[in-house]
């Protein structure tokens, strides 16, 4: 088994899916000879040619919209938004079109498109190269939002997204691209969309999070173990629609729940997770649900000290878990 980093796992999944199914093709800005600005499509243009690794004009609504048209025709497009921040011009196509095509046509048409977008801060990207955008899309039935937390998950979830019969927004944390490495099997495997995964078993406090924050939560949990605090970590994997069953089970197990996101706290994914827990787990809770997210500023500043102040990290999570354990 080879050790791959997060972005290599993306490239691998794309390559294997394009080899498996000739209806899979890639479109986006600079995805061709350049191999993507982060190199996610590295080598694919050389292997599959211009027709299947298509450099588009700089126009996000067309990247989504053309992909949607191709998907309705019967192709399996993988559209790349160069940065999640620049998905906003394509919101109408994603919400009004992709998410509604099956429903509005009473199951006559479908739209099996995958839209990949690098999100997240910690790369000195300033306001417009750092944002978390999942909450914008997380109340659109018809759409699925997948946010993998590790290279292994990336490969299985991206393959599942490409094979899915419905539109999937696949959000990749760009700081994870080269930070996270692990063994990734050579063989073909998928991970089910819509299912969360317990990434660490524990009995004192439950942390529920997703994306890169899973990594920080694991770091915090390892440290706290030495103090005798045992942490359960649930990785949502799919942030819309949520895996309610897994959330209820994980929250009820310890009765003390910490919810973590890199996004601004108010209106974020974890607010919905909190609502699910309060609806279903009242008598299992031993402490108020605790949420940890970014402060309510519009987006992440450039200067290192400001960026660091805004970002999630393992120290913040560690403190919050300890507080909950002692509650």
């Amino acid at each position: 088994m080879a050790v791959l980093n997060y972005i290599q796992a993306i490239t691998k999944a794309l390559k294997e899916e394009m080899e498996r199914d000739e209806k899979v093709f890639i479109l986006g800005e600079d995805v061709g000879p350049r191999g993507g600005v982060f190199r996610a499509t590295d080598g694919l243009y050389e292997q599959f040619g211009e027709a299947r690794v298509l450099d588009t004009p700089l126009a996000e609504s067309a990247i989504a919209g053309v992909g949607i048209g191709a998907a309705m025709y019967g192709m399996k497009p993988v559209a790349e938004m160069q940065f999640a921040d620049f998905i906003l011009p394509a919101v109408n196509q994603i919400m009004s079109e992709a998410a509604r095509i099956r429903y509005r046509s009473n199951n006559d048409w479908d739209c099996p498109i995958t839209i990949r977008a690098p999100y997240g801060g910690g790369v000195h990207g300033g306001l417009y190269h750092s944002q978390s955008i999942e909450a914008i899309f997380a109340n659109q039935p018809g759409l699925k939002i997948v946010m993998p937390s590790s290279p292994y998950d990336v490969k299985g979830l991206l393959k599942a997204s490409i094979r899915d019969q419905d539109p999937v927004l696949f959000l990749e944390h760009k700081r994870a691209y080269r930070l996270l490495k692990e063994e990734v099997p050579e063989e073909d495997y998928t991970i089910p969309i819509g299912k969360a995964a317990v990434k660490r078993e524990g009995s004192d406090v439950t942390v529920i999070t997703y994306g890169l924050c899973v990594h920080f939560a694991k770091q915090a949990a390892e440290k706290l173990e030495q103090e005798g605090i045992s942490t359960e970590i649930l990785d949502l994997r799919t942030v819309y629609p949520l895996d309610q069953e897994a959330i209820i089970k994980a929250a009820s197990k310890t009765g003390k729940v910490l919810l973590v996101t890199e996004d601004n706290k108010e209106g974020s994914i974890i607010g919905e997770v909190a609502a699910i827990i309060s609806e279903h787990c009242l008598f299992d809770l031993d402490a108020p649900i605790k949420r940890l997210g970014a402060p309510e500023v519009p987006a992440m500043p450039f200067a290192s000290k400001l960026e660091k102040e805004m970002l999630m990290n393992s120290d913040k999570i560690e403190t919050a878990i300890r507080d909950l354990a002692e509650f």
Partner: peptide, 22 residues
């Protein structure tokens, strides 16, 4: 299939033509 926001079908037409060409 069509929606109400006008002109969203125009990129779709390009996408269908692209797929047919491919």
């Amino acid at each position: 299939t069509q929606s109400s926001p006008v002109t969203t079908q125009v990129p779709h037409a390009a996408g269908i033509a692209l797929a047919a060409k491919m």
